[in-house]
Amino acid sequence: MSVPLLKIDQLAKSFKGLRAVDGVSIEVPEGKIYALIGPNGAGKTTIFNMIAGVFAPTEGQVLFGGQDITGLRPDQVCQAGIGRTFQVVKPFNDLSVLDNVLVGALRKTPHVDEAREAASTILKQLGLDGKSQQMATNLTLPERKRLEVARALATGPQLLLLDEVMAGLRPTETDEMVTFFRNLNKETGITILLIEHVMRAVMALSERVYVVNYGQLLSQGTPDEVVNDQAVLDCYLGEDAF
C-alpha cells in the first residue's frame, strides 16, 4: 500500500503555447475515492485525458501501480486497468444498451456469451436492466450518464475515472449515484477519481479533494478543509457552486 495506485507527477500540457495544465501532482491510494474539482476551464478534463492516454503530456509522468504509463494509447491504458467515462457522453448510439456494455465486458473475456452475462449484471446494478434492449440513442441524458459508467465498469478497471457523471442529474438521482459508487467501492475495493461540479456528490463521496485552477493545483485536503479554504472560495467567486 505504500505505492499509490495512481500517481501523476509534475504533469504539464501545452496547447500551442497555452499551458492548460502546469505541473500538477496528484496521488490516489488504492481503494480510495478522491475528487478533482475546480472552475470551468481549470484543466481537469485535460488531466483526465493525459491519464487516459488521449494525449501525451508535454512534461511529467503518469504512474499506475508503480508502472510508468505515460504516453500509452487509450486502449493500452484501459488494458492496464483504468476505466473512464466521458464528460460529453459517447454511447455507441446504434447498438442496444446491452451491447454497449457487452463491448466493454469483452475486455475480460473473448466469449460474447460470457460478456453478455457480465453486461446484464452491471446493467442491473445501475438500474438500466429495463432498458437493455433499447438503442442507446433513445436514452435520456441521465440514463446515458449511467450507461457511460456501466460500460467503463464492464472493462473491469482497478481505477475508475469519472468525468462529471452527476452533471444534469436531479438531487434524488445524484443521491442514488452516490450510494451506488459508495457501495461499489465498499464491495469491490475499486479506486475512483472523479471530476465533479456537484458539490453535494463530492462532499458525500470523496475522502480527499484536489482543487485545480488555471492548470495548477490550488489546494487539497478533506472536503471540509477545501470548502473552508479562502483561496478555493476566491477562485469560485461568482460561481454559485458554493
Partner: peptide, 24 residues
C-alpha cells in the same frame, strides 16, 4: 457474433469510446 464483430461496430459508432474500452 464474435468479439471482432462487436469491436467493429463499436469503432463504427465512436472510435474514441471504442479505444476507451480497450479496443486497439
Amino acid at each position: 457474433r464474435s468479439r471482432l464483430g462487436y469491436y467493429w461496430m463499436a469503432i463504427r459508432e465512436d472510435q474514441e469510446a471504442a479505444q476507451a474500452v480497450g479496443i486497439n
